[in-house]
């Protein structure tokens, strides 16, 4: 009986400390100069995306695509001339937000000499890193949702399009996806901030990983796929390899969160996407030209969602473990 009471008490204290740390980290983000940068970056994504949507929307309608009914979602995917859409901007720039937020999470405390003061307080060490991660996720959520809803609102005002319930739902799920995507990069950045002693090193390492995922994975996928399943010859085998080559490249590509996010967001924001894999003519025979319901689209990208969330958790778990095992000394 007494033991359960003390356990309950220590649990409460634990929550209290996590709350204090979370509030402090959140306040740090909001008061810091870095927040200006975030807002600038987010505003850039929002304004550019909005501009692209409004100016490109009429073309999209005149193009007479079958999904003209989902005009509201087009706000996020339409690009005009050379201006990229909100979605592609998010895929490209979102990681920066996560990286900026986390790249010096632990090592700046270490170099400032506040970390050993912090760990000598009566708290479990994991609360420190969890507090930082949760604060980052919280800020990300607020920013992503406000920017997404801002576009939606501006789009409604500018074009008079009223979203249907299904569209609004798709938008919400998409924005959640954005948060998890940025959360993954935040976790990676925190990981490097525990491993690297200097903030600059960890920032460079994060950017290297981001470049690798955004550019080199697709190159690598093509090279590997060609090596395993050569195509382009005139013989029967290369014809047979065509499909395998495509799948191999796709599977390697899917290791990259950038690609995962791209596929998932395309499916969520475009109900006419019926499959994320290659479809043969036989499979298509007898299929009606129609759009997917929200549930079906989510079902389609469920593996992407779990994979992205798993990647985020793995990155965070690794940083958690490495932080717990580190010995904290004076700077």
């Amino acid at each position: 009986m007494e033991q359960t009471i003390t356990q309950e008490k220590s649990k409460q204290r634990d929550h209290h400390i996590l709350k204090v740390l979370f509030e402090k980290e959140t306040a740090d983000f909001i008061n810091g100069k870095r927040m200006l940068l975030f807002i600038l970056l987010m505003a850039l994504i929002t304004v550019t995306g909005l501009y692209a949507a409004v100016s490109g929307l009429s073309d999209a309608i005149e193009g007479g695509s079958s999904s003209a009914d989902f005009l509201f979602l087009k706000l996020f995917t339409v690009s005009a001339n050379s201006i990229p859409s909100y979605n592609s901007l998010m895929a490209l720039m979102g990681p920066f937000i996560g990286i900026f937020m986390g790249f010096d999470a632990i090592n700046s405390e270490r170099t400032e000499g506040t970390l050993n003061r912090l760990v000598s307080q009566p708290l479990y060490r994991d609360n420190i890193i969890i507090g930082k991660f949760l604060a980052g996720i919280f800020i990300t959520t607020v920013m992503v949702f406000s920017s997404g809803l801002l576009i939606a609102a501006a789009g409604i005002l500018a074009t008079g399009i009223i979203p249907t319930g299904a569209e609004a739902m798709r938008l919400m799920i998409y924005l959640c996806f954005c948060v998890i995507y940025i959360g993954f990069w935040l976790a990676v950045a925190i990981l490097f901030s525990t491993v690297c002693r200097h903030a600059a090193t960890s920032a460079l390492a994060c950017i290297a990983v981001w470049l690798f995922c955004a550019i080199f994975v697709s190159l690598l996928a093509g090279i590997l796929a060609d090596a395993f399943y050569p195509v382009g010859g005139n013989d029967m085998e290369s014809l047979m390899n065509e499909m395998k080559n495509y799948y191999c490249a796709q599977n390697i590509n899917r290791l990259s969160p950038y690609y995962l996010f791209g596929e998932a967001s395309a499916t969520l924001l475009n109900p006419s996407v019926r499959s994320v894999n290659a479809v043969t003519m036989t499979q298509l025979s007898g299929a009606l030209v129609s759009t997917l319901s929200v549930g079906q689209s989510v079902l389609l990208v469920w593996p992407h969602l779990t994979a992205l969330a798993a990647l985020m958790l793995v990155a965070f778990a690794v940083s958690y473990v490495s932080f717990m095992r580190q010995e904290i000394r004076a700077r």
Binding site: E112, G113, T114, R117, S120, Q121, P122, A330, R331
Partner: peptide, 14 residues
């Protein structure tokens, strides 16, 4: 840690 205060060498503050 609740009973012991620690002043590290070259203490840092935010």
């Amino acid at each position: 840690k609740r009973k012991v205060g620690y002043l590290p060498d070259n203490v840092g503050f935010y």
